[in-house]
Design a protein around this nucleic acid. Structure first.
Length: 275
DNA sequence: CTTGTGCCCTGACCGC
DNA sequence: TGCGGTCAGGGCACAA
């Protein structure tokens, strides 16, 4: 489940390998669900062929390829999406949906469960595009302030965990880091968002930033499917405090970690440490 | 506007 | 060994 740290890790891995290279061949899996209603395979193919990758950016969980034409290729990895390079001529693994060939290597997009998505966005239309335009601030951006978050939470009665998962509130936070941030802030994920005090929101943002930064440094969390390169796992799983640890002792107080579905997602927390 | 629910999809895992 | 059932969850459609 690639979240902000995992997508950022993939971005950093691919940037030096792809920027400056020109797309020489485009292969799209027939009827790939990743394109859905966003762009036709023929249009995508036509618009990518011969284009140079001039930048590789990230916004939330979206990877943003800037092309020489000024247009953008957006990739969201969903739950099981993987993106890495392979030697030319190397056989594509099953569930390869997109293969871009460059002078020295190929880029493969593999996604068994097809929760991922691919978008093509014309030049100048990135910020106004529906998926990018509706995103909240980057949690690691200094401009993302406690007061801004407080404004967002003030009118929400949903659980703080659900609010953290809302990409319009904060971009890039998923199930793992929402749970970890709540634990580090000592805040129960069940609390209504608007019940948090400014002090608690500050602790939450600080905890979130710390866990995101530490995870990026460890190349992300490999819980199940995520890899930042072929066969390469992230190391942050050993640093997780509560996520996926239901029934195990809380690392702070030793009480048994509880699991509950919040906002439709499995949520792990300590009822003693998190109030 | 808000909030909650169900669906998409495949593979890993479990119990029999 | 095989096989059916369950679960994982990001984003979106949809209903209230």
């Amino acid at each position: 489940m690639p979240e902000l740290p995992e997508v950022e890790t993939i971005r950093r891995e691919l940037e030096p390998k792809l920027v400056g290279r020109t797309i020489q061949e485009v292969r799209i899996k027939k009827g790939s669900r990743l394109l859905r209603d966003t762009v036709s395979a023929a249009t995508l193919q036509r618009n990518l062929l011969g284009q140079k990758i001039v930048a590789l950016g990230r916004r939330g969980k979206y990877l943003i390829f800037t092309l020489g034409s000024g247009d953008f290729l957006l990739i969201h990895l969903g739950m099981t999406g993987r993106l890495f390079t392979a030697k030319q001529g190397e056989p594509a693994p099953v569930h390869t949906h997109l293969r871009l060939s460059f002078k020295d290597r190929d880029l493969l997009l593999i996604d068994p469960r097809t929760f991922g998505r691919v978008f093509w966005i014309p030049a100048g239309r990135l910020a106004a595009h529906s998926v990018i335009g509706s995103l909240g601030p980057e949690p690691l951006d200094p401009a993302c302030s406690t007061s801004r978050l407080a404004d967002q939470f003030a009118r929400r009665s949903i659980a703080i965990k659900a609010a953290l998962l809302d990409q319009a509130v904060l971009a890039g936070v998923g199930n793992i880091y929402a749970d970890e941030a709540c634990f580090r802030a000592g805040v129960s994920p069940l609390r209504p968002a608007k019940s948090l005090t400014p002090r608690e929101i500050q602790a939450l943002l600080r905890g979130l930033r710390r866990v995101l930064s530490a995870s990026i440094a460890a190349k992300g969390t490999t819980f199940r499917d995520y890899q930042w390169d072929a066969g390469k796992s992230g190391d942050f799983i050993g640093k997780l405090k509560v996520y996926g640890k239901a029934g195990q002792p809380c690392p702070k107080c030793g009480a048994k970690i509880k699991r509950k579905v919040v906002g439709g997602r499995s949520t792990c927390y300590c009822t003693r440490c998190q109030k």
